[in-house]
Simulated scan of single mutants.
Amino acid sequence: MRAPIGDFDNAVPAPDCLDRLTEPVAAAVRAWQGSVPADQLLYVDTDPEIADTAVFVEHHGRDLLDRSANCVIVAGKRGEETTLAACVVRSATRVDVNGAVRRHLGARKARFADMAVATGESGMEYGGITPIGLPADWPLLVDAAVVDTDWVLVGSGRRRGKLILPGKAFAELPGAVVLEGLGVDVAAG
């Protein structure tokens, strides 16, 4: 099947290729609920050497920049307590860590989580972290622009492969909170 976005000729419903996903992502796909059917979560195989957004869109089409999202893990700290949260923003933007994220988490300080923490706690590979299958107790902050995009390309849990799903599905993920202004224009920062 051809993917609804990008130049991918071989999109496969994620429930049909669970072995290509990390265990947390595969478990989330198996347990999928919501208004978007699980077979609308599509997996496309990609080269792990070009997983980073800038290189990826150069290879697969610049139009994907506005139709792809990054999922980053942040650590909010207040006193001795640290809260890990995931943030999903369009790839053409950056996460407003010190504004929207810090305020939403009620943290005094917020920063991107260390790579070892992000990968170890999520069970996913660096450069492939996805909001699908994250720990249930993590806040999941999703920029409204992602939800308003018809189809969104996001990591699959591994550097190899991506998932494509309707933007509205992000609002239905466990723990999801949709926020305006979570993603800030890169040129503004």
Rank of each mutant, 00 (worst) to 15 (best):
K162C: 02
V57K: 05
R2V: 12
A113D: 13
R90M: 08
G181L: 03
G128I: 00
D185N: 15
D47N: 15
V29F: 08
Y126Q: 04
D66T: 06
C71I: 04
L182W: 07
V88G: 07
P37E: 13
V146H: 01
A171P: 10
E49W: 07
I50Q: 07
P37S: 15
L84A: 05
V74C: 11
L42S: 08
A14Q: 02
I73Y: 11
N10W: 14
L21P: 12
G123Y: 03
R108E: 00
T130K: 09
G181I: 10
R20K: 14
A188Y: 08
P37I: 13
I129N: 01
A86Q: 01
A85T: 07
D150Y: 11
G123D: 03
A113E: 05
G155T: 05
G128T: 03
P13G: 08
W32P: 10
L21A: 02
P174N: 12
D45A: 15
T82M: 07
Q40M: 13
A144Q: 12
G181F: 06
P135W: 09
G189A: 13
V12E: 06
L65V: 05
V154G: 01
G127Y: 05
Y43P: 02
L65P: 01
L64S: 05
P13F: 05
V29Q: 13
V36I: 02
G183D: 10
G99N: 08
L163Q: 04
D143H: 00
P15N: 13
L140P: 06
L18S: 14
L18V: 15
A110D: 09
G189F: 14
W32N: 12
G128E: 01
G175N: 06
P135I: 06
V147K: 04
G128R: 00
L140R: 06
I50L: 11
P135V: 13
V12D: 00
P13H: 01
V184E: 11
V55R: 07
S156P: 09
A92W: 10
G181H: 10
D114G: 01
R159I: 01
L42W: 09
V117I: 14
V89I: 07
E23K: 12
T82K: 14
G34D: 06
F56H: 04
D96G: 12
A69N: 03
H59E: 15
V154T: 15
D63W: 03
S122F: 02
G155L: 15
A85M: 05
V25W: 10
V97T: 14
C87G: 04
F112N: 06
V152I: 00
G106H: 12
S156T: 05
A51D: 09
A169G: 04
G120I: 00
R102H: 13
V97I: 15
L140Q: 09
G127V: 05
H104P: 06
M124V: 02
A85Q: 14
E125M: 08
V44M: 02
K168G: 10
D150F: 09
R103D: 10
A113M: 10
V74Q: 12
G161K: 04
L153T: 00
G133L: 05
M1W: 03
D52Q: 09
I73E: 10
A187Y: 08
L179S: 05
